[in-house]
Design a protein around this nucleic acid. Structure first.
Lengths: 243, 243
DNA sequence: CGTGTTATTGACCAACATCAAACTTAGTGG
DNA sequence: CCACTAAGTTTGATGTTGGTCAATAACACG
């Protein structure tokens, strides 16, 4: 079985078969977690990192008065807290937003692999740099674009990332998020995101049935979002229907 | 002469004398640049990275209609575009906000050092991870706190970073930024940042003479900002006057 | 079914943006 | 050293986006 991790890493970096085989040897402690499980907390000093195999995670910071900011979403194949390898103290939390399967990998095993395989070292570093690139994009969105553009942009991003990871076909996907969670990611209120989504639906840009999304008009959505996937730094070509 | 780079890296990572010596061997192409010089542009494919020796840089994304978001500020000793080592295409620009001295280092030389010295490899990776941590903090600030808190937070961050790098003593420092640039960093309008600054001055939290800042009341400022320096991941203790 | 969560709606309001003008400062050339 | 200019800062008036509050409706699940 070709692992999700390899799918995700080969999407952004070159890995020869030897490196891929080496990745398969990583010892995994597989755990199923329910919605709402906080895998890592702000302030923790993890000794393992966390490969998502199935499900949907987010990283988040809690602020006072119940406010929180979701910092990123994570899809199968990603290692959201790879940074803990070099940053001892977590500056944010990691939580499951859908029922998920997670594989814990001891830092020592990852470090050993990095030490002996430069290709893997580069790929993992690159993965954390792409993380950072996505933070920059979100920062620019939250700082400088309005609610509709920001929302559309997030939908474009998630849809494309899912597609590139081979998790979906075409324009349909599940976004296992409440509107409140969307709001926390986009820096807005639940009420307002509700209205924005209604707007996007009214314009035919998206269709939703519960948490199942269909993109109704990719080109319009992309244009509204001013979405340019360059910041995702994929090494594989983007499929025609998502150009 | 102990280099700024070593000051900055030993602030966040352990480097033995051998590693420090190795860093000193990096070939530097030193250039002086005026205010406004764009060292790297969005879309570029740099073959060198850029060590700031003197001055003040920022990274930024341009949006349409003249809008822009400043993504980070950079102080002497930092390598703002270290990421270009692994991300071929720049997803943002790098510009001097003060007259600066910059040392270009070929990617090849950095990579060679990384390949042969694990301590340096770890330190540089860690530096990019701290970058990312700061993006997360900015994202949370822009997304979830109000103008005054955000502004105070930025002032705390820059003041502390300067102090930790040994660029300043006490509570005084120069911030070579126009209010428009501050606004672009904080995701607000120039008019509004002006009013927020007036407020902070009126409360005695800061004193400004032109672009020279003095922190009038660190504890109050820190409290208003809800500033917790953990996200900067320093390995050295924070001086008493900045606790 | 009943209960808790999530989505939706409407009324109202606050924070912040925009616009335009006046004022200050720093830099430049005569 | 002064006048001139351009850049940056400050102010006031006004507008808008999006937040808050509170109630209702729709689901989801045991």
């Amino acid at each position: 079985m070709s692992s999700k991790l390899i799918d995700a890493l080969t999407l952004i970096a070159d890995l020869d078969t030897q490196s891929q085989a080496a990745l398969e040897t990583l010892p995994l402690r597989v755990v199923r977690v329910p919605v709402g499980a906080e895998l890592v907390r702000e302030g923790d000093h993890p000794s393992e990192c966390c490969l998502l195999q199935q499900g949907f995670l987010c990283r988040h910071k809690e602020l006072d008065e119940g406010k929180r900011q979701i910092l990123s979403f994570h899809l199968p194949g990603e290692i959201p807290d790879l940074q803990s390898l070099h940053l001892q103290t977590m500056d944010h939390g990691l939580t499951a937003l859908a029922p998920s399967t997670v594989a814990y990998i001891p830092h020592g095993s990852v470090q050993a692999l990095i030490d002996e395989n430069k290709q893997i070292a580069a790929a993992l570093w690159r993965a954390t740099l792409i993380d950072a690139s996505i933070f920059r994009q979100w920062l620019a969105s939250v700082g400088r674009s309005d609610a509709a553009e920001r929302t559309a942009h997030l939908i474009c991003e998630v849809a494309l990332r899912m597609r590139m990871l081979g998790l979906t076909e075409g324009y349909e996907f599940d976004l296992p998020l409440t509107q409140t969670e969307l709001a926390d990611a986009l820096g807005m209120s639940p009420v307002h995101i509700n209205r924005v989504l209604q707007d996007l639906r009214a314009k035919g840009l998206i269709v939703t049935r519960g948490r199942h999304f269909t993109i109704g008009d990719w080109h319009q959505l992309k244009r509204l979002a001013k979405f340019d996937p360059a910041y995702l730094h994929f090494r594989k070509p983007i499929p025609g229907d998502f150009r």
